Simulated scan of single mutants.
Amino acid sequence: MRITQGCFSFLPDLTDAQITSQAQYCIEQGWALGIEYTDDPHPRNTYWEMWELPMFDLADAAGVVRELVACRQAHPEKYIRINAFDSTHGWETVRMSFIVNRPAREPELVLTRQEGPGRNQIYAMTVRPAS
């Protein structure tokens, strides 16, 4: 199963050159970049672990790529994403987020449904570890 979260998630994995191009685009927009990682890809898990500090005032994407390489070396079997934050309105808004690393075997998300009172349907999503 392939986890689909963020921009480009329905496309094949981005190459390093494509990641660099996207990071450069974000920098040209004036957005700060951050790298995060997790082993829990549940859609409601919005709080991934932050890799280093967010990167402000970058001139080119080389700094982002350097940190991405270090994060991949430290966490090769985790999900890693790049987030682009726009602070032009006085608060940080995520403008772009995309996965740049996946584990070799991805866990499976399972949707279960139960009958509730009054014919209500109760849904729950659980993560089944990769086998």
Rank of each mutant, 00 (worst) to 15 (best):
T93Y: 08
Q73I: 10
I99V: 15
I35E: 05
F56N: 14
T38E: 04
G118Q: 03
R105Q: 13
Q73K: 15
A59W: 00
D40H: 09
Q5K: 11
L111C: 05
Y47G: 04
P12D: 08
L53K: 14
L14W: 08
V64K: 02
H42E: 01
D60Y: 01
M1G: 14
P107R: 12
K78H: 14
F56G: 03
T38W: 03
R128K: 12
R128D: 00
M125L: 06
Y25F: 13
N83I: 11
A32V: 04
Q22S: 04
L68Q: 07
L53Q: 13
N83K: 15
T20H: 06
V69F: 06
T38I: 02
Y47N: 12
A17F: 02
P107Q: 09
E28V: 00
R128L: 02
E106R: 07
S131G: 09
N45Y: 02
Y47W: 06
R44P: 00
A124W: 07
W48R: 06
R102L: 10
P117D: 07
Q24L: 13
R81W: 01
D16N: 12
S9V: 02
S21A: 15
T4D: 10
Q24R: 12
W91M: 12
L11T: 04
V127T: 12
T46E: 14
F10S: 10
I3M: 13
Y79T: 05
A17W: 01
R102S: 11
L68H: 06
L33Y: 08
T93P: 00
E77S: 13
I82G: 10
I35Y: 05
P117A: 09
T15E: 03
Q5M: 04
C71V: 08
P76T: 07
I99S: 03
E49D: 11
G63Q: 09
S97P: 03
P76S: 07
W51Y: 15
D13F: 01
R72L: 02
F8W: 13
N45W: 04
Q29W: 04
G118C: 01
T93G: 02
E115P: 05
I3C: 08
Q22R: 15
S97N: 09
P129H: 11
Y123P: 00
F10D: 11
T4H: 13
N45V: 03
Q73V: 10
V100S: 07
P117W: 02
G116M: 04
P41S: 03
N45H: 11
T46Q: 13
F56H: 13
T88L: 02
A124I: 04
E67K: 14
I122E: 13
G118Y: 01
Q73S: 14
F56K: 15
S97R: 14
